[in-house]
């Protein structure tokens, strides 16, 4: 599993604010569904590739990896529309999805998690009225991204330890014998994590003020 989506580079695309990139992504989606013609879709796809591989200097593998995750879906759409619609519709549908997936990949590969989270925090700012602290939401998202790989690693280690003693990690039984010790480890770890947050001043956050970005006028 990899969540290492960000590809550090010095490029114009990287420097565009996260909010701008997300808006552009949304605009592209609207355009492609509003004007679903082959020239527009092909132009969009080429444009995305030009921005990703050219302007942002991303490695082709970074984009290919994302395309691969939807390859069966693309194949399914292609077959479905070829059979039940016509070839041009099939082409438009498949290329449109591909363009959007690659565009999303370009945005995630050129935007730090922090910036993305800051946008989410800004979007959540109105929730302040009902007492929610947007900074807390941001922290939760960051921590989820941080601890998913840690969890996967711990689960692997437990499975290894069981395999080393002749256990098998297959089937429901295997699942149960992995999950129980994993939960125990998690609970212990959660305690330390909360102490570590405290030790670094998690409660120090000045209220009524965003942690990462200047708060919008309140």
């Amino acid at each position: 599993m990899t969540l290492a989506l960000y590809v550090p580079r010095r490029s114009v695309v990287h420097r565009v604010p996260a909010g701008g990139k997300l808006l552009a992504l949304a605009a592209l989606a609207v355009l492609l569904f509003a004007v679903p013609t082959l020239p527009v879709v092909v132009a969009a796809l080429l444009g995305v590739l030009a921005v990703g591989l050219g302007a942002a200097r991303l490695p082709a593998t970074a984009l290919a990896r994302q395309a691969r995750t939807v390859r069966w879906w693309l194949a399914g759409l292609l077959v479905f529309h070829t059979l039940f619609s016509d070839l041009p519709t099939a082409a438009v549908t498949v290329l449109r999805l591909l363009a959007l997936v690659l565009a999303a990949a370009v945005v995630t590969a050129t935007t730090r998690v922090t910036e993305m989270v800051a946008v989410i925090e800004r979007l959540c700012a109105p929730l302040r009225v009902v007492g929610v602290r947007p900074a807390r939401i941001g922290l939760v998202i960051s921590m989820a991204l941080r601890f998913i790989p840690v969890l996967a690693e711990r689960a692997d280690r437990i499975r290894e330890a069981q395999a080393a003693r002749g256990g098998s990690a297959r089937g429901i039984r295997g699942l149960r014998t992995t999950v129980t010790p994993l939960l125990v480890q998690l609970l212990q770890m959660a305690h330390t994590i909360s102490e570590a947050l405290d030790a670094r001043g998690a409660d120090d956050v000045p209220p009524a003020r965003g942690r990462r970005s200047p708060a919008p006028a309140a």
Binding site: L3, Y6, R112, V113, T114, L139, S142, M143, L145, R146, V150, M189, T192, I193, E195, A196, L197, A199, R200, G201, A202, D204, V205, P206, R209, R211, R212
Partner: peptide, 25 residues
């Protein structure tokens, strides 16, 4: 703490290093 995994709370290195400073404003 003893276990570094339990005290790194942000996904990337620089983000984590900045965490305490964000808290201090």
């Amino acid at each position: 703490f003893q276990d570094p995994d339990a005290q790194i709370v942000h996904p990337t290195v620089a983000e984590d290093a900045a965490y305490g400073l964000e808290n201090q404003g």
